[in-house]
Every structure is written in structure tokens, then in C-alpha cells.
């Protein structure tokens, strides 16, 4: 039952471990529009190129929170489903349509609190120029072997 879910155990993770990176290459307009549709955010700067150009940009840019979605995918691919407890995000450079991004992270803390086995992760998303579009902090609860 648990093999689908529990990919990584608490005992297997150490402070300083890197999160297996996840890339989206590139973040197409189609991806951005699907995200807009799923969440119902149709602010024109995220899908209307003419609007973006009229307001001084040269193309549309992704919703900031699409990055939180990509990071959710990154952590789930590594840890499995249902382990994310907390997520916090700050934005940096804009994520422009057709940019390529990579989600990365490092385990900063491993601890037990209220009976839960937790890890804190400092994570970020960078574009093809190495600029950070998102800085993200996550806490995940992991299963134990015992």
C-alpha cells in the first residue's frame, strides 16, 4: 500500500542533501494558459500578448504561483504524495513565457516535532540565466522505517 506514497524515509535524508532537480524546458504559453484556466486567474498580463506589449513588456509572464506548483511537483517526485506540510514563497525575477526553469533545493534541518519526523528545505527556481524567479521554503513530514 505504501510503496506508491513513501518514496523516501526519514532515516535516508540528511541535512545538506540536495533535492533532485526538476526542469521545465521551456515554460510554454500553453502551460501558462492551462494554469490560468485551472485556477481561474485570467489577468491579461498572463495570457494576452498584445496587452503585455502595450504595458511595456515584450511578452506575457507566468503567474507567480505557478512556481509554487512546479515546486510542489519537484518535492512530490522526490518524496511521494501527501508529505508536504508547509510552503512559503517569495518572488524574484519574473518568469517570462518560453523561459526554461529548474527547481532546486537543499535540506537544511532534520528534526522531530509533536511526533512528526520533519525536514526543512530551502528551495529555489532559477531561469536559464541562473537568475532566481522564486525562493521557497518547505517543510515535509516523512515516514520512518521503524
Amino acid at each position: 500500500m505504501s510503496e506508491l506514497i513513501d518514496k523516501v524515509y526519514f532515516e535516508d535524508v540528511n541535512e545538506g542533501d540536495e533535492v533532485p532537480p526538476f526542469s521545465v524546458n521551456p515554460v510554454t504559453r500553453t502551460i501558462i494558459v492551462k494554469y490560468a484556466g485551472a485556477g481561474g486567474d485570467f489577468s491579461p498580463m498572463h495570457h494576452d500578448e498584445l496587452h503585455a506589449i502595450r504595458t511595456g513588456a515584450d511578452r506575457i509572464f507566468a503567474h507567480g504561483l505557478l512556481g509554487a506548483g512546479f515546486m510542489g511537483t519537484t518535492l512530490e517526485k522526490w518524496l511521494g504524495v501527501g508529505h508536504l506540510r508547509r510552503l512559503r514563497t517569495r518572488f524574484g525575477e519574473r518568469l517570462w513565457a518560453n523561459d526554461s526553469i529548474t527547481c532546486k533545493g537543499v535540506v537544511t534541518k532534520k528534526y522531530v516535532q509533536d511526533g512528526e519526523h520533519l525536514i526543512d528545505i530551502d528551495a529555489w527556481i532559477e531561469n536559464q540565466w541562473g537568475q532566481r524567479t522564486h525562493t521557497i521554503w518547505a517543510t515535509a513530514a516523512l515516514p520512518t522505517r521503524s
Binding site: M1, L4, G69
Partner: peptide, 15 residues
């Protein structure tokens, strides 16, 4: 799965 059925990824709340 532990939830016994289809669930949404947590990031949907951010969307």
C-alpha cells in the same frame, strides 16, 4: 494510496 482515491496536489490552493 493512503488517501484511497484521487486527490488534488496541494499546490492547487495556490492557483
Amino acid at each position: 494510496s493512503q488517501y484511497g482515491g484521487i486527490t488534488f496536489p496541494p499546490g492547487i490552493l495556490a492557483a
